[in-house]
Design a binder for these strands. Structure first.
Lengths: 237, 237
DNA sequence: ATACGATTAAAACAACCGTTTGAATGGGTG
DNA sequence: CACCCATTCAAACGGTTGTTTTAATCGTAT
């Protein structure tokens, strides 16, 4: 109906973006050819280069259109929390909800491709492709510039370096929860068809527990039970 | 010295495996050609097909030789803990140490390619390549068959499904901590050159905090501060 | 010295890659 | 109607992919 703003129907350009998004998450980045994309989009082979200039530009646009909206929502959620706090630090759980919860909501949307895109995004975070890495870094810069200071204020006693690392860990847990396809799926048959919405409370409490974990708890690993274990423990190599 | 068991020197076969391992983590799986591999290994182009039969078989062997040893060490560490516990449940921190700590130790070894391989492994967990996915699943089956029951025993009050999910999250945090290359690296300049050994206590306490997190803590997200936020919160879509 | 099995070497194979070209098509405007 | 501009189309471009082939080379045991 009012989907395509000025155009008439899902035009070729959008079909290419949707097809590319779905194929990238399935076959990877270099494993998807322009012929596969144009074939799935029922478009001519030259359509990719005509509409986007190159395959790389297509990839960039696939990320841009979704990531821009996601990060806009993230910042809006943080704005709302900070306005409600009226000067006081926002609670960590609220900050995590604004950042990761917003992303998980997008991942729970299976009808408009949000789920597909979040799988692609999680997967891309470990793909070191040069130009897309820089693109992601630029796209994230603005959001992190807001969320990290908010966490610093919320946890004034935790060293900033530690918060940075834990944010990194949390990104990993979320990416993996959405995109991960490891051996665990062998055991739990209902990892695929699990309601993505139920994933949200599970992951959020895990993240919050990790963020709040005692700093030096690790020290207890070695002397907790094993008396001498010099290689069985966790000593650095 | 006693590296190459029966052969004389680092022979072509091993040079191919090492070169492939390093190139895969840098340029990805499909982004690495047999010519790049044989070139880096200073071998003839046909060497890959002669020694391994195909490029896919090479990939499989790259994972097999390292993963077999890693999982052997993991099981040995768990064996030791269970022997020391003499029937009693092993503490969660010990189990995590045996599984994730062992992997992190391998990742801290930058001299024998352990670090390179762990980056590759973390990256591959989100790469849905068909045949390597099944290969990883088979390789992990044995280890998970031991570690998950151990966690069930250690945390009898936590639903098994929840433990499964949290194990999944922990895998993600670890993979990302080693292989991740997201926008955070823009902020933290010392993410690359950071001593991998210092990563171990950081990650372990994060994982333990997440594993022990209260189950229903998430419920507090919505009513904690925001009174009505219907789209700013975490409600499922 | 000779013959042999294992390894390496150089060249070629068809298939596919991303991209470009130039002509056909089609609806909207003068 | 004629014009035009955007889009689509079929075909081809040079280059790279994984793999195969055939000959040359090596160390070793006969």
């Amino acid at each position: 109906m009012s989907d395509a703003s000025r155009a008439s129907v899902p035009d070729t350009r959008d079909r290419l973006l949707d097809a590319a998004e779905a194929l990238f998450v399935e076959h990877g980045f270099e494993g998807t050819s322009t012929r596969m994309i144009t074939g799935a989009a029922r478009a001519n082979l030259a359509a990719v280069n005509y509409h986007f200039g190159s395959k790389d530009a297509l990839v960039q646009e696939v990320f841009r259109r979704r990531l821009a909206e996601l990060n806009r929502q993230r910042l809006a959620a943080l704005d709302r929390l900070e306005a409600e706090a009226s000067g006081a630090p926002v609670r960590p759980s609220g900050i995590l909800g604004a950042f990761f919860g917003t992303a998980l909501q997008l991942a729970a949307d299976t009808e408009h491709g949000g789920h597909t895109f979040m799988r692609l995004l999680g997967r891309t975070n470990t793909e070191p492709n040069a130009f897309i890495r820089q693109f992601l870094a630029e796209e994230y810069a603005g959001v992190l510039g807001r969320f990290l200071p908010a966490l610093y204020r919320a946890l004034p006693d935790v060293p900033r370096e530690e918060i940075l690392w834990r944010f990194h860990f949390m990104m990993g847990a979320m990416s993996y929860a959405i995109a991960g396809t490891d051996g665990l799926q062998l055991f739990a048959g209902r990892f695929d068809d699990a309601d993505p919405a139920r994933l949200i409370p599970r992951l959020m409490s895990f993240l919050l527990g990790g963020l709040r974990a005692p700093l030096a708890e690790f020290g207890g690993f070695r002397d907790e039970r094993a008396g001498e274990g010099d290689e069985g423990g966790l000593a650095a190599a």
